[in-house]
Amino acid sequence: MAISLLSFIILLMAFSIILSLADPRTEIVARICGNVRVQNVSNYFQYYSRITDYMQDEMYRNKFAFKDVGKPPDRLFVLSQCMDDLSPDECAVCFTQINTIIPGCFPNTGGRVYLDGCFSRAENYSFYREALGPHDTTRCGADVNPRPDFRNAVVKVLDEMLIKAPLAGPVWRGFAVNHETSHGITAYGMASCWKILDKDLCYTCLSNAASSALSCLPSTEARVLNAGCFLRYADFSFANESTGEIRGMEDLLLDERLQFLQFKHATILKATENFQEVHRLGEGGYGEVYKGTLADGREIAVKRLYASRDSQIREICNEMDIISSAQHKNLVRFLGCCFTSGDSFLVYEYG
């Protein structure tokens, strides 16, 4: 009886944990595999395991991660991202689920998997800057609503997201949720670019996705699965619109001098070799620190931030303000910042 009671308690606790989560949206939308085979399948599986182990903490903190391991031709590049309306716990559930699906594409060189709550892609080449690709696809729902008011509501939703998502701040970069009503008929939408894309590539991807979604009308639901973004509309609410967007760092910067200390995201990635683990120096307040080398040979230390609350962002901005204006022989010199990716970065002189 004691064993049965203990089992019941464990099951009850597990059920309570599940109930404490909202919907992590782990429904499989599509798995699209490549058609070229890798040379060493065993290495590929090992690389994938190493990468996903590394990415777990990144996904929980940032809902976004990318990493590459190995040498050509079997070098493996992986990018994963959750929709920003998910909580960290929901993202962890979705990421765990999607990790079991991607290896189904091996021994081919890779593929993409879209769940309603997250996305992952693995390839043997660097695809990080791809906004559109030959395998982009659109899934239209079976139910229809031919009323013009539904079309009008969908058009309004897509237009609004196309404006909001590419311009969203660093915390919700490339992400938007929205709903619009036309004469009592409501349409709901969500758009998400992969955070490594800049605003121009994000707009390119979502503009294409919006056009593809409109081709589904009068279907009451559509999903567009592009290389660089995911877009969905429906006649029911499926996203967490109550999660208010945290204001971006640029909204909190009070010292205009800092706008002249902007590093390009590409410069940061090149200097740290896409944040290779070998360059990781350690972890400090609100972020990890990597060593990098600029094109002119200068060595830098890059703090990769994972601020998630207004209070944290304000403290980071205060740090930037103080360090950029202070000069002391024992104080590391602050060189600049970068707010052009899903993560944000502070750049210091290394020494």
Rank of each mutant, 00 (worst) to 15 (best):
C193K: 03
K67I: 02
T220A: 08
D198M: 02
I98G: 02
T26Q: 03
N35T: 15
L167T: 10
Q97T: 14
G284E: 12
V154G: 08
L162S: 09
A222G: 08
Q56R: 13
R147L: 15
G342S: 13
V289A: 06
S344W: 07
G284K: 04
N274L: 11
I98R: 01
I268W: 07
K303A: 07
V38E: 05
L305S: 02
N330I: 05
L12K: 05
D136E: 10
E250D: 13
K199Q: 12
C229Y: 03
R223G: 00
S42L: 08
V302Q: 02
I316A: 01
I9C: 11
N40Y: 11
N108G: 00
C202F: 07
L281Y: 09
E283W: 05
F263G: 02
I9K: 00
N274S: 14
D143H: 07
H265M: 11
G282K: 13
T138C: 02
D343W: 08
F95M: 11
A307R: 00
I9S: 05
T186S: 12
C118A: 13
A14L: 15
I102M: 05
D89E: 14
N240Y: 02
C338H: 04
T96F: 07
Y128N: 09
I316V: 15
Q97C: 08
P218R: 11
D85C: 06
A271F: 11
S80F: 03
A301R: 02
Y125N: 04
S344V: 10
R61Y: 10
G351E: 09
K67C: 13
S87G: 07
T340C: 04
Y60H: 08
F175N: 05
M320Q: 13
L79I: 13
Y188D: 01
L206N: 01
N318F: 11
N226Q: 09
G292I: 03
A301S: 11
I185Y: 07
F345I: 06
E58C: 09
A165W: 01
G282Q: 10
N152F: 06
F334G: 02
C118L: 02
A191F: 12
V278T: 12
G292H: 02
Q56G: 07
G228C: 04
S308I: 09
C193W: 04
G34F: 10
A266T: 15
E221S: 12
A142V: 14
R298W: 03
G292A: 05
F15P: 00
V157G: 03
F236L: 04
G287R: 06
I18D: 05
L252D: 07
D53C: 06
Q327N: 15
L252G: 11
I316Y: 03
Y203G: 00
R304P: 02
A168H: 00
V155C: 02
P170C: 10
I51W: 05
D296I: 07
S120G: 09
G117K: 01
A14I: 14
A301K: 05
D143R: 09
R121W: 03
T109A: 13
C337L: 15
L197N: 06
P134R: 06
C338E: 07
